[in-house]
């Protein structure tokens, strides 16, 4: 049964991982962080993460196209890296997203995405 720290450690073990965090996307606050953050600022990165998730869930209509559709993850690709945002679905009320910053050269997007899915599921699954 992995805890929060354990989950972030495993995220950092994904090939090419530079930094990881768990972000509350209602407030844009990083509840847990590890490794590096873009511009060396985890809190600013969390605020940006929250903006992106809010845009996808409430300001765009992608998620409401089909009843009971659910946002699973978001991937932002830059010249230097990948930013993976995986929503953590808890039964109790929380709005959390698992964030991973991945190096473009050393990282493998498909592998990282699968591992992130597993991590987010294991974090809350009994």
């Amino acid at each position: 049964m992995p805890g929060v720290d354990n989950c972030l450690q495993e995220a950092m073990a994904i090939p090419g991982a530079i930094g990881a965090s768990i972000v509350d996307y209602t407030t844009g606050f990083p509840v847990a962080t590890t490794g590096a953050a873009p511009n060396a600022d985890h809190e600013a990165a969390a605020a940006g993460t929250a903006d992106v998730v809010q845009a996808a869930t409430s300001r765009s209509l992608f998620v409401s196209a089909v009843p009971h559709d659910l946002l699973e993850d978001l991937i932002i690709t830059t010249a230097g890296g990948y930013h993976l945002l995986r929503l953590v679905q808890t039964d109790f009320d929380s709005r959390l997203v698992l964030y991973l910053w991945l190096d473009r050269v050393h990282g493998n997007l498909a592998v990282a995405r699968r591992r992130m899915q597993k991590l987010a599921d294991e974090l809350v699954a009994a």
Binding site: P2, V4, T90, V124
Partner: peptide
């Protein structure tokens, strides 16, 4: 799970 309790 520990993750759930910690996050909660």
């Amino acid at each position: 799970t520990r993750g759930e309790l910690e996050l909660c």
